[in-house]
Design a protein around this nucleic acid. Structure first.
Lengths: 344, 344
DNA sequence: TTGAAAGCGCTAACAG
DNA sequence: CTGTTAGCGCTTTCAA
């Protein structure tokens, strides 16, 4: 039960603690004889020694931990995974980090919560923040001196690396697709449209497409709530209440689409017969939906991988070159859209 | 950029480092004058001091971190969240931990990987392991001297706290429900049926129900693969290939059911008209399915919460009382089952 | 009510 | 090639 320390190993191997340290870290500046190395390794094995990474990072200032912050952007939600997007992203981050010998320090946060303490506290080597907005908390982080990667955030600041997608262009692509399929009345359904957020970009892309097709964007076509399944159901009710004016909808997240489809069904509106849907993300839900969702595909796995990679790169070369990484988007055609002709 | 340490605060406040420490931790054995306390707090605020938790845990042996291990039990999957169950569970664990001022050290592991290093390394205060099997790695953990909670695991060992559900009973309940609805040919669909795993318990429950209804369990009714969407599709194909013998299926996870439904659809088998489905977990997917899944409900949020609570309790009283916690199950009726009468 | 001093376990110059 | 010597930033007896 007594933890074996580096000293115990040193004693067992008949060398000094630093020698053990050298062997274990294969410190490049020091060279140890094969013979000594072997003795040390034997002792390590015999004693079942496992280095205390806390102590190590205290003295070396590297922790091999990456902090991951998933802020609650939708007020009132306590849990992170109302949107499976986060799960998929985290999964990929974890996997990539582990491949490189890093562990993850995971935390959600209330939006007003202090990001700084969370990270600095633990001496993480880098921080990945998902979908945050500009604010005090972010600024405080800059002083930390560790690389910070913002995922899906429109905070513009040289101090942060960013990784994201062309939200606006993706939305435009999706909406144009519906227009090409003959739709004229097209709804826009999303979470809260906040400044500097992802949804406003998607809203703009929607407007772009509408406008370049000479279609007007009227208020009745805009549905905005929260990014979750339940809001999809709500939006469906709203759609019916507003008189089913639209023949198609661009929905800014697959989860919402899932709820929307369910809600529409309950109101005897068929997808895609009565309402076509193109959504966004292509989380695994998209394939599961019934009908399967035609959606803007983004490579979530790659997003996570790149986020970790950015941290590792930045940590390696101690230069603070600001990197901005934009991942490609594509439209995946499945079953939730039908062509709209001058009809009934 | 220079981190402010406890010494800086001490100097600023004109006291010693230990005094600062006392104030910050409100150490019970020491009492400080309100006046000094105020001076210290002022200095802390002025300098923007944030304690280094690494150093703290090095000397105090508490880290306020909980290690969470999500092993890959299905070989070949690198990512954790092929089953949304994990996401929901993690979400709840994170939330509860945060409420209590704890952070999460998250790691997946290959099954054969060394659990020990992951945890001991960082000096976590407790470990939560999800769905693991007995093995060497687990045993090594015992020597750590920190509380360990096994979630959904049938490892029997006084050294571990466990939290789980009555898998066998739940499966029996589900299967009996189908029998009561008039079904006689009932399939069992699950992930790999391994010894000491959750699936074998559910299999046994299935058998229990079949046998007490005087129904035989034949090999043709058993479908076993991996716990994911794709296997559901595979199972559907298999079902058709085997001649659509069954009128109902008990499926051991909602994700699989999702795939199953999709696969059946592709083969023009309707749910529930041609095949009724009862599944297990009641993740959010269950409601989203079309038809919505009749399923055995378990309170995943509570599971996570209890897991954290067990750690905190065990860490508080340093007694090693072994706790075993079983959460209740219930059947949620939705749309995926129909009554089966002597038909066509 | 406060401070001095001794570590926690490890790394990193710097000597030898 | 290896050991000595200082810390990293904090907690915690023990004395004052």
């Amino acid at each position: 039960m007594k933890r074996v320390s580096i000293k115990d190993v040193a004693k067992e191997a008949g060398v000094s603690a630093s020698t053990v340290s050298y062997v274990l870290n294969s410190t490049p500046t020091e060279s140890i004889s094969p013979e000594t190395a072997r003795r040390v390794m034997d002792a390590v094995k015999k004693l079942g020694y496992i280095p205390n990474l806390n102590a190590r990072s205290l003295s070396s200032r590297r922790s091999n931990m990456i902090g991951v912050l998933i802020p609650q952007t939708e007020p009132g939600k306590e849990l992170m995974f109302s949107n499976p997007f986060y799960g998929e992203l985290l999964s990929s981050i974890e996997y990539t980090a582990r491949q490189h010998g890093y562990h993850l320090l995971l935390s959600g946060t209330k939006e007003d919560q202090d990001y700084l303490s969370i990270a600095q506290n633990r001496g993480v080597d880098g921080i990945i923040i998902v979908g945050t907005y500009p604010g005090e908390n972010l600024n405080a982080l800059k002083q930390l001196g560790v690389p910070i990667v913002l995922v899906d955030s429109y905070v513009k600041d040289e101090a942060f690396h960013t990784i994201g997608i062309e939200d606006r262009e993706g939305a435009r692509m999706a909406t144009r697709y519906l227009i090409e399929k003959g739709h004229r009345q097209i709804a826009f359904v999303s979470g809260s449209i906040r400044e500097n957020g992802v949804n406003i970009k998607r809203y703009q892309g929607y407007c772009d497409a509408m406008q370049s097709a000479g279609l007007s964007v009227d208020e009745q076509s805009i549905y905005s709530g929260t990014v979750d399944y339940d809001y999809g159901i709500t939006a469906a009710k709203e759609y019916v209440a507003r008189g089913k004016k639209q023949t198609a909808a661009f929905v800014s997240a697959d989860v919402i689409s899932m709820g929307l489809i369910k809600g529409l069904q309950q109101n005897h509106v068929r997808v895609p017969e009565d309402l076509s849907i193109v959504s966004f993300d292509d989380v695994y839900l998209a394939r599961m939906a019934n009908p399967a969702l035609t959606t803007v595909h983004q490579d979530i796995g790659e997003k996570g991988k790149q986020a970790v990679q950015l941290i590792l790169d930045a940590a390696g070369f101690k230069e603070h070159r600001h990197t901005e990484c934009i991942l490609p988007l594509s439209l995946v055609e499945r079953e939730s859209v039908r062509e709209w002709r001058n009809q009934p």
